[in-house]
Design a protein around this nucleic acid. Structure first.
Length: 110
DNA sequence: GATCTGACCACCG
DNA sequence: CCGGTGGCCAGAT
């Protein structure tokens, strides 16, 4: 009995949409919260498959290194960086985000 | 309808 | 931190 899921993607979108402004989370974290620990890939694919119609703050999702992933460093990558800064996030010299500082934790879950 | 490709992470060393 | 391996799904051609 599948929980069923409309698909793991639906869960992922839900979790991501729960991320508070000014915070970021990693794909792995989202995967866990979505109920698919270890399958961070699915998260990446899910976000990648996002279409123009979505209310999901995908820009708040970054890789475990605290850096923006996006293989295609195009508008999306640039956009994510801008959006995060706009939300008050800070990037270090390496262009990374201090997860220890802005990393969203379920305990902090507003 | 099969094949290819794509925002990753955990574990091991 | 880096490198290699395994695990998973959906969309596009």
């Amino acid at each position: 009995m599948p929980d069923s899921i409309d698909s793991r993607r639906a869960r992922i979108y839900s979790v991501v949409s729960l991320i508070p402004t000014g915070y970021v989370t990693t794909y792995g974290q989202v995967a866990v919260l979505a109920g698919i620990p270890g399958q961070a890939r699915q998260v990446g694919y899910a976000l990648a498959a996002l279409s123009g119609d979505h209310d999901v703050p995908w820009h708040r999702v970054i890789n475990a290194k605290g850096e923006i992933s996006l293989r295609t460093h195009g508008d999306d990558g640039n956009r994510q960086h801008a959006l995060l800064e706009e939300e008050g996030l800070r990037f270090d010299s390496n262009g990374r985000i201090a997860l220890s500082r802005f990393g969203w934790r379920p305990e902090n879950r507003a």
